[in-house]
């Protein structure tokens, strides 16, 4: 369990920092200054029971500018983006957007993902879209199993799915895949280092 004692306390003005708060405001169009500290976000969160840092505490960490802690938290890789927190927030603070922003930042800075398989799966899916314009479900699952060294994961289910006609063994490529590839080139997900 994450040690929360170091930040879960009443903040005095000299313990807060503007920089991360401003950055979030600019990029996520959401103002954490509006937080009423009610905790509805954590109350509604689908995965609060497994989060190392729950949404209400994430807001607190942004207030004190604890960026390093936020970039390596497990919550980035276990958030299901169910949108309950933002819809329950009386101030409409867009926590899912903050999660996406911080994850993208962590990814670009090569901060190791606490759940490497989740990161790997995202990368393989983007790779499939870049190559074919669509997700080649069967092929991607095989790639995932090999790269994550879980060679027999879901094999039995995969066979069942195949016989139900749900798995297309051959990927289909869109005609204008060049247009999609150009998007990837124009928006490089550059990783530093």
């Amino acid at each position: 369990m994450h040690n929360t004692a170091d930040f879960y306390h009443v903040l005095r003005i000299d313990q807060t920092s503007n920089s991360l708060r401003e950055e979030i405001k600019e990029h996520c169009h959401t103002d954490i200054e509006m937080c009423l500290e009610c905790g509805k976000c954590s109350g509604g969160c689908s995965n609060a029971h497994i989060f190392d840092i729950t949404p209400r505490k994430i807001i607190q960490l942004i207030k004190i500018g604890e960026e390093a802690k936020l970039l390596k938290m497990d919550a980035l890789w276990s958030c299901v983006a169910c949108q309950l927190c933002v819809d329950r927030c009386p101030s409409s603070i867009n926590i899912p957007k903050i999660m996406d922003y911080m994850r993208e930042k962590a990814y670009k800075q090569c901060v190791p993902a606490t759940r490497p398989n989740v990161e790997l799966f995202h990368e393989l899916m983007l790779g499939s879209i870049k190559q074919y314009g669509r997700v080649a479900e069967a092929l991607m699952t095989v790639q995932f199993n090999i790269k994550s060294k879980q060679y027999t994961k879901d094999a039995e289910m995969g066979i069942k799915m195949f016989f139900k006609g749900k798995l297309n063994p051959l990927p289909s490529r869109i005609k204008n895949v060049q247009q999609v590839r150009r998007m990837f080139r124009n928006i490089p997900a550059q990783r530093e280092g």
Binding site: D100, Y101, E104, E123, I129, G133, V180, M183, I187
Partner: peptide, 25 residues
């Protein structure tokens, strides 16, 4: 015609501009 994948969880998890662009096409 010739639609592309919406980017699903992967794109919005790692690349905001890409996820919007994939849908925009």
């Amino acid at each position: 015609e010739d639609w592309n994948c919406c980017g699903a969880t992967a794109a919005h998890s790692l690349n905001h501009e890409l996820t919007i662009s994939l849908s925009a096409r």
